[in-house]
């Protein structure tokens, strides 16, 4: 197994510092999904060479030197592991359109062209899975006993499955032997750490970001589907009536939201379902509608998860009523 590398955000920071000069990414859209994306954009512009593989041209791929058309999971064979630890088989039901190809075949061909073909000798998807079986042997998530044949026959196999005759483990720790040094389950109390950017008199309001039901991640797929765009075509600023009144903000009035990292305008949605000191913006959109222009890049020291959920902002009402939500905005990029 390769050793531990950098987490996504650390990687972008390393690019920004000039330590990393080339990047090959698969289905990666950091310009929408990572915090403080003005810094992310600077980093991408510093890259000497950037190759992006994705099934649709995402907002980040616009910064790439080469874009390779990859495949959706409906177009590729392989396995997936569900949240309950069940390894399931994924079969292609359609072939990639045009010159698009499966991600695996792109990587393998790149390896061959770069002279590392001997390290990628895979003929079919099962060969890659078999390597994972060997690599995970003896680990906590032991895949060694899981084969394509077994997965298909049993409609999925749960890890750990250490040997070929092992049935898999639908429920973990039933033997009460935990994968810790003393074999006991450990609770890890997390000490409270205040947010890295507390509110102050210049930036008095808490900004939190998140999702809406009809969109998925950075919207590379879901911002292209009319029926998913319709219910929530553009990001709105959720704000409590008491906070709104303080600023004289009316429903659907355009509000400029400013943080130490950037600013953007959103129509207000006045609702009592949010805290009085906090505003909320969903993050799925790109360009001028992107909430991650505002967020902060501080990482949790252990999980390396960025502080998407809290930073300090200013609200500046513009006095302009937003026009009816326009669906075309959803497709708009940087």
């Amino acid at each position: 197994m390769p050793g531990k590398g950098l987490s996504a955000y650390e990687l972008v920071e390393a690019i920004h510092r000039g330590e990393i000069k080339g990047l090959l990414s698969i289905c990666f859209n950091p310009i929408v999904s990572l915090p403080n994306n003005n810094m992310v954009r600077e980093a991408l512009e510093k890259l000497e060479y950037y190759v992006a593989i994705d099934f649709f041209l995402n907002d980040t791929a616009r910064h790439a030197d080469v874009v390779l058309a990859g495949a959706l999971h409906e177009e590729e064979e392989g396995t997936g592991t569900t949240a309950e630890g069940r390894v399931v088989k994924i079969n292609p039901v359609v072939t990639p359109p045009g010159d698009a190809r499966t991600d695996a075949s792109i990587i393998i061909e790149l390896a061959h062209r770069l002279g590392a073909g001997d390290k990628f000798p895979y003929k079919k998807s099962e060969d890659i899975f078999n390597e994972l079986r060997v690599a995970s042997k003896g680990g906590t998530a032991d895949y060694f006993g899981i084969t394509y044949e077994k997965i298909v026959k049993n409609y999925g196999v749960f890890w750990p499955c250490p040997s070929l005759d092992h049935p898999g483990t639908p429920r973990l720790w039933e033997d009460r032997k935990f994968a810790t040094a003393d074999g006991k389950a450990h609770f890890n109390p997390a000490p409270y750490r205040p947010p890295s950017e507390p509110t102050d008199k210049d930036y008095p309001v808490v900004l939190t970001t998140g999702r809406v039901v009809s969109q998925y991640l950075s919207g590379t797929q879901t911002r292209r589907i009319g029926r998913l765009v319709d219910p929530y075509p553009e990001p709105l600023l959720e704000i409590h009536p008491s906070l709104a009144q303080q600023y004289g903000i009316k429903d659907r009035e355009i509000v400029k939201v400013k943080t130490r990292r950037g600013e953007a305008e959103f129509p207000a949605q006045v609702v009592t379902t949010i805290r009085k000191d906090t505003v909320f913006i969903p993050y799925h959109w790109a360009g001028p509608k992107s909430a991650n222009q505002l967020t902060i890049g501080t990482l949790d020291p252990i999980s390396k998860m960025p502080e998407f959920k809290v930073c300090a902002c200013q609200l500046i009402p513009t006095g302009v009523q937003a026009p009816p939500s326009s669906e075309s905005k959803a497709y708009q990029s940087a």
């Binding site: 029926r227 429903d251 949605q269 009592t272 379902t273």
Partner: peptide, 15 residues
């Protein structure tokens, strides 16, 4: 065309 209706009951005050 979906014929079923899903909508907020009163978004200003509840989800």
């Amino acid at each position: 065309e979906p014929m079923i209706h899903v909508n907020y009951v009163d978004r200003a005050h509840s989800v």
